[in-house]
Nucleic acid binder design. Structure first.
Lengths: 340, 340
DNA sequence: TTGTACGCGTTATCAC
DNA sequence: GTGATAACGCGTACAA
């Protein structure tokens, strides 16, 4: 019987307790149990059990150079879309025996830099990010040090990295086709300012192209969604403008959908009469009024694909491979908000 | 074959590059810059800059025994409440120079055990959890090893740990008072099965006491919320039952609110005529029908308080201190769903 | 099959 | 002020 220590047991203590050597204990916990005699196996297991031993990943990561940690930099952890992708990332990591360290940057560029340094200092074996700022220099350094990098959606021209995300062009085509088929002729596109975030840019561009190609009337409102009055005014003006064709709002992401729904709600607009279509499926979209039509993204698949890219890149020796792109398709969920 | 990627720079390389010793470089990066001569400081800074050096936290964690990592075990990462608390935890960690390692157990007891072992193996300096299973033995071991532990809501009688969470009794009193004031006389309480999760138990118990004390009619439906038909039937029966007093649903958490709203939606019930009150405030509660009345929890404060407890316990030497409880108050947000 | 010795990058303890 | 050196816990040649 051993006295309950308040320290963590080490491999050496387990070895002594089991009457074996460090090496054997190390083997036991490194998946080479078969090569040990049954006797040793049981006594090591018993000793480890008694001492509550867990291998120290800090130490093993130091020696082997493998931290077994994947880092993830998320722009907005309170966005359900990000969480869903993260869920996929996490599952894929677990299946590979990796841990996930998630940092939320709250759309703050300084925070992003800070968190990136942090993840670097833990020697993460790969990095998944969808964050904000222009960290080109730091990311370039990271990639040159041999750390695989996958960008969610936002692509940075400077840095050699995989990009995983939605096929934005086809998603917008899908949305525009649907709205046109339902008879809406004047559209207002709602988005946060594109800034450096390339998917926002890609969606916006395709919206403008698509509107022109379909001979629809299209307007754009790009503004921080926090400014409620400004948004309400913009939507109010759009709806009040004289016009013969039915009007609809197209929202670039989940946050925009939420903001638009609130605005329409406070303006007293009836969903359907005023069309509403949002990119990103959310829990509550089926519950508001006649339901909100959405374009759902395969979030889990996106997360898993990110990890797959990471691992592939790691196994093929990093930057010698050309950067790739993985696109997923959105699926339309028609509801009452696009039904007149 | 020479590796094409130059590895991470080490403290030794920086020292050589700067013409200094390891010790000085270590001091420079450990907040003891003042004790170095200005000359040394600049040359170390320059060398580190050239080499892109970041201290290896794995190594420093090994030597000093401080990983600078806080672990968090979350039962359901897709629950917005959990994410909001996590956000608070993260902020508090950052302010203290700690990193956060989050593991999602997906309400799976086996996964929970696995993740706990993982976090232990990284020698987390503290653990925040709100997870499911009965991990009493493992947690007890953790605490005895000197790792501070804070439980969110769910308390485990066996283990000595702080508990941070809502004042469930007063929250339910608030809810019942509101419903009674609004004239609802027959209540149906919706919850997932209490099982080992003590807050569910606490809320349920208080509901039953409170209903009796107020001479209201109260029923309870505790079932996995995934079973839609069962839930619909239960709510349908409740509403169809002859009775003179207005009826209302009381939902034990955000998931229950979502399920109840869906059920009422599919049953064609009108919110308000049928009362609805949910614990946990969600983005969409103001948007559905006339709005859903909720009891909001101070999520960020709960997360921050958890980290504070952790740190306090660590600084006072862990298990010598008696376990404590921190309770927060919910605040009522009245909306149309409790207005006839 | 099992044991020994060394190195991973860092911090702490001394000496100068 | 600065520098040499010994741990920290583990993996792994290499020896037995």
């Amino acid at each position: 019987m051993t006295t309950p220590t308040h320290q963590h047991a080490t491999i050496l203590e387990v070895a002594r307790e089991a009457g074996a050597s460090k090496t054997s204990v190390s083997r036991y916990f490194s998946g080479e149990r078969e090569r040990l005699s049954p006797n040793l196996q049981t006594s090591i297991a018993a000793a480890a059990q008694r001492l509550g031993y867990h291998p120290n990943r800090m130490a093993s990561g130091l020696k082997g150079g493998r931290s077994r940690i994947i880092g993830m930099l998320v722009a907005d952890i309170r966005n359900p879309f990000s969480v869903a992708v993260m869920h996929g990332v996490e599952q894929a990591c677990r299946e590979r025996g990796l841990s996930l360290m998630v940092c939320n940057t709250d759309n703050d560029s300084a925070l992003e830099r800070e968190h990136l340094a942090l993840l670097t200092s833990y020697r993460v074996e790969g990095l998944v990010m969808n964050a904000v700022g222009s960290l080109d220099r730091e990311l370039q350094a990271l990639v040159e040090q041999g750390t695989p990098l996958v960008l969610l959606e936002r692509e940075l021209s400077q840095v050699e990295a995989e990009v995983v995300g939605l096929d934005n062009a086809r998603a917008l085509d899908l949305a525009l086709d649907h709205l046109q088929a339902r008879g809406y002729g004047e559209l207002l596109y709602l988005s946060e300012p594109p800034g450096l975030a390339s998917p926002r840019q890609a969606r916006l561009t395709r919206f403008q192209q698509g509107v022109a190609a379909r001979a629809l009337a299209g307007e754009v409102h790009c503004q921080t969604l926090g400014e409620t009055e400004s948004l309400n005014r913009a939507i109010g003006n759009f709806l009040a403008r004289p016009g013969t064709l039915p009007k609809a709002l197209l929202c670039a992401n989940g946050n925009a959908t939420l903001a638009a729904t609130r605005a329409l709600h406070s303006l007293g607009a009836r969903l359907g009469e005023t069309g509403l279509l949002g990119i990103d499926e959310l829990d509550w979209c089926e519950l508001v009024g006649p339901g909100i039509t959405t374009l759902a993204q395969p979030t889990e698949a996106i997360g898993r694909a990110a990890v797959e890219c990471l691992m592939r890149r790691r196994d093929t020796g990093g930057r010698t491979m050309p950067a790739r792109r993985v696109h997923f398709q959105a699926s339309l969920i028609p509801r009452g908000s696009t039904c007149r």
